[in-house]
Computed example of a mutant assay.
Amino acid sequence: MTLKPHAGDLSTVEWAKSSYSTNDGPQCVEVAWLKSSYSTNDGPACVEVAATSGRIHVRDSKDPQGPQLTFSPEAWTEFVRFASTV
């Protein structure tokens, strides 16, 4: 599953380097967190999503070090489908 930035604007993508990566080693992995287009900097609905191999991660953009939800691509698709009907 591929997540695309809102309106193709890569300037809104925040890259996070894996804590297992080092600056001098070849094993550098980064995750791109995409902020929801419905989120604002001062509002209560701040959500970011990142796709990795076989998983979709969701977190609160105001607490990037806090807890995350992890979905399979199929579960994420069902969640988005349900959320769009509510």
Results as ranks from 00 to 15, higher is better:
D42A: 14
G25T: 05
S53G: 15
P44E: 10
P67S: 15
A83F: 00
S84E: 01
T40L: 12
M1S: 00
T2L: 04
L3D: 02
Q65A: 08
R59H: 05
A45S: 07
L10W: 07
P26H: 00
T77D: 08
A51W: 00
P73T: 03
G66Q: 06
C28K: 01
D42V: 12
G8R: 04
V86F: 13
P73N: 11
T12M: 03
R55M: 11
V31C: 09
S61Q: 12
R81N: 13
D9V: 10
S37F: 10
D60F: 13
V58A: 05
T40F: 14
L10M: 05
F82G: 11
A7Q: 14
S72E: 15
T40M: 11
P44A: 14
V47R: 01
G43C: 11
K35F: 13
D9S: 09
Y38I: 09
A83Y: 11
W76M: 09
E30Y: 01
V80N: 08
A50Y: 01
V31T: 04
V58I: 07
H6S: 14
V31K: 05
L69T: 05
S61D: 07
F79W: 04
S11A: 05
S21K: 01
T40A: 08
V47Y: 01
E74Y: 12
L3R: 00
G25H: 07
H6L: 10
G54K: 12
S39V: 10
W76L: 06
S21F: 02
V31A: 06
I56C: 05
R55G: 03
Q65V: 12
G43R: 05
G43M: 13
A51L: 01
Q27R: 10
Q68F: 15
Q65G: 09
D9H: 02
K4Y: 10
C28N: 02
Q27C: 02
K35H: 08
E48M: 09
W76I: 08
V80R: 14
E48H: 06
V49R: 06
T22N: 11
R81T: 10
P67F: 14
H57G: 06
G54W: 12
M1V: 07
S72H: 15
G54S: 15
K62W: 09
P26W: 00
P64F: 12
G43K: 12
S84A: 14
H57K: 04
Q68A: 15
W76C: 02
A45L: 04
E74P: 14
V80P: 10
Y20E: 04
